[in-house]
């Protein structure tokens, strides 16, 4: 850092961009962690079926596998656009 760096425009804070991107991707990857391998494909096919009837976004279908006291719960969450 020299006197000239005070005259130049301040550089962008890329660390905060990195943190935000990481928080999103890590949260998404954790939600499918340990789940069966077919989950992403299931999600994709469900999305296609829903889209035949309702126009929805790519992330409108949320599939999650949870384990609770020995039984597995497949949770399906579909956000429909407001009518």
């Amino acid at each position: 850092m020299s006197i000239f760096s005070y005259l130049l425009p301040k550089r962008q804070n890329t660390a905060s961009v990195a943190k935000e991107r990481l928080q999103i991707i890590v949260a998404r990857e954790r939600s499918t962690r340990g789940g069966p391998d077919y989950l992403p494909q299931l999600q994709e096919e469900l999305l296609q079926v829903v889209r035949k009837y309702v126009p929805v976004d790519q992330d409108a279908v949320n599939v999650q596998m949870d384990r609770e006291s020995g039984c597995e719960i497949l949770e399906l969450n579909i956000t429909l656009p407001e009518a």
Partner: peptide, 16 residues
């Protein structure tokens, strides 16, 4: 680089 906002801080990494 952390102080210049160009590198994730130790707190950031720990939080994630």
């Amino acid at each position: 680089r952390v102080e210049n906002g160009q590198m994730l801080s130790v707190e950031d990494v720990q939080e994630i």
